[in-house]
Amino acid sequence: MAVPGSRALSFLHGRWVRHPRWSLALKGAVAAALAWFVALLAPAPFSEYPYYAPLGAVVAVTSSAVRSVRESVQAVGALLLGAVIARGVDAAVGSSVLSVAIVVAVALLCAGSRLFGEMGTWVVTSALFVLVLGGAHPLEFTGVFAGMIVVGAAIGVAINLLLPPLPLTPSEIALDRLRDVLVDQLELLAQRLEHDGPLLAEEWQRRRHDLTPTTDRTRDAMSGTREALRVNRKARRYGERTTAQARRAQELGSAADVVDDVVRLLTEWERADQERVALGPLLRPELVTALRAYAEALRSDRGQGPADEAVARCRESVDALTGAVRAVRRSSGQDLFVAGAIVVILRRACSALTAAREPE
C-alpha cells in the first residue's frame, strides 16, 4: 500500500517534470541571487554596480548546459563590442541625439554577425547602457559593466553544469501538437474528398504552408533535447524515455513528409478545375479509407489506442487502394501515375510506422 507522503512526492515530481519552467525559474532565481551576493562582496567600483551580475547569470542559466557556455561567451563578446562602440562614438561625436543614432545604427549592423548568434541583440543593449549611463565615468563604467556580466555569466554556467536542464516535456508537447495537426489534416482531407470531390487548390496549398511552423517548432524542440542530453547526468536515468521520444520524432517527421506529399499531389492533380483528375469517383473512396486509417494509426501512438491493430488496418486499407488502382487501370486503360505515386507514399508511411514501433 502506498504511503500518502510518497504519493504526494510522486505527484509533485510529476508536476515538476511536466512544467520545466518551474525549475528554470528556481535556477534563475538562485543564480541571480548568488551573482548579486558575489557582486556586493567585490571591491569598489564593482560593488557599486551589483545589478549587472544577475543579468549575466540569467543570460547563462536560460540556455541548455551546452549552449549556456557558448551563448555566455557570445553575450559577453556582444556586450564588450557594444561598450567599445559607445565609447568610440562618444569620444568622436560627444553625447547628443546624433551619437545615439550612430551608436544604434552601428550596433545593429554588428548585431547581425554570426559570431554572436542569438546573442547579437546585446550589442545594442550594451551600447545604449554605456552611452547613456556611463557618461560621468566612461572607462570605469565600461569595465565594471563588462566585469559584472562576466561574473554573473560564470555563476549561471556553473549552476547549469551542476543542474543541467533536460527538456523532455517541451519536446513531448511539441510532438503531441505535431501529431494532432497531422491527424486533423488527414481527417479533413478525407472528409473533403468524400463529400466535396476534387479539392480547391488554394485552400490546400495554404494548409500545406500552415503545417510548416508546427514542424519547425517540433524540430527545434527535439534539437534542444538532443543538445541537453550531451552533458546531462540524468540522461541515463531517462534513457528509455529519450530513446522512445527519438523514435516517435522520427515517425512523426516521416508522417509530416507523407501528408505534405499527398496533399501536394492531390492539389495538383485532383483539382476541381481539371478535366481529368488523378483518382476520380472510383478511387476516391478507397483513398478516403486509407487516409482515415493512417490518421488512426498516428493517433494510436503513446497508448492512445491499440497501435498494432491500427497499423494493421492502415496496411489493409493501403492494400485495398492498391488493388483498386490496378483494377481501374485494367478496365480503363489509363496510366494512373499519380494514383500509383500516392500508393507508394502510403506504403512507405506504413513501413515507417512499423519500423518506428518495433522493439529494439
Score class of each variant (00 low, 15 high):
D319V: 07
R299L: 09
T354R: 10
R315I: 05
V59Y: 04
P138E: 10
F337L: 14
L131R: 02
A297M: 03
T62S: 14
V30C: 02
V30A: 11
E203C: 04
E140M: 12
L133Y: 11
D210L: 09
A83S: 15
E203V: 13
I159A: 07
G143R: 04
R114W: 08
E286V: 10
E203S: 12
L287W: 01
L41N: 05
R67A: 15
A53E: 00
I345E: 07
A153R: 05
M148H: 11
G117H: 00
G77D: 05
P4A: 10
Q274F: 09
P20D: 06
A105G: 06
V288E: 07
T62K: 01
L336V: 05
A244I: 01
T62D: 02
V17G: 06
L108W: 08
I173P: 00
L12C: 07
L287Q: 00
V132T: 10
S126H: 01
F46G: 00
P20T: 07
P45V: 10
D180N: 08
G147V: 03
Y49E: 13
A111H: 03
L229P: 02
E202Q: 11
R313K: 08
G152Y: 02
Y49S: 09
E316S: 14
H13E: 15
L163D: 07
R348I: 01
S95K: 11
V325A: 01
P281M: 03
A341M: 12
F141I: 04
G280W: 01
L162P: 08
P20V: 02
L109P: 04
R15D: 09
L40D: 10
R208F: 06
A341W: 06
S351R: 14
G134M: 07
V311M: 03
V3P: 04
E202L: 14
I173C: 01
M119N: 06
E275S: 13
W204I: 03
A83L: 08
L168K: 09
P306E: 14
A324W: 02
L200A: 12
A278Q: 02
G197I: 03
A174E: 00
R247A: 12
V150K: 06
D301I: 12
A53D: 02
L287R: 03
V76G: 00
R177G: 11
D90L: 15
A228R: 01
G143E: 02
V106C: 08
H209C: 08
A111V: 04
V89R: 02
L298Q: 04
V262R: 00
R264Q: 11
H195W: 13
S331M: 15
V103I: 14
E286L: 13
R247N: 09
R271E: 08
A228V: 03
L287I: 05
D308C: 01
Q205W: 13
A29F: 09
R326W: 11
D210H: 11
T125A: 15
Y52P: 05
G14I: 00
L291F: 04
V124I: 12
Q250M: 13
A154K: 06
T169S: 14
T121D: 13
L178P: 01
A312M: 08
V30R: 00
T125Q: 08
V84M: 11
L115A: 13
L41Q: 11
S72G: 07
T242N: 08
R264M: 09
R330V: 15
T121A: 14
Q245L: 14
R315K: 10
A107M: 06
A246W: 09
V58M: 13
A255R: 05
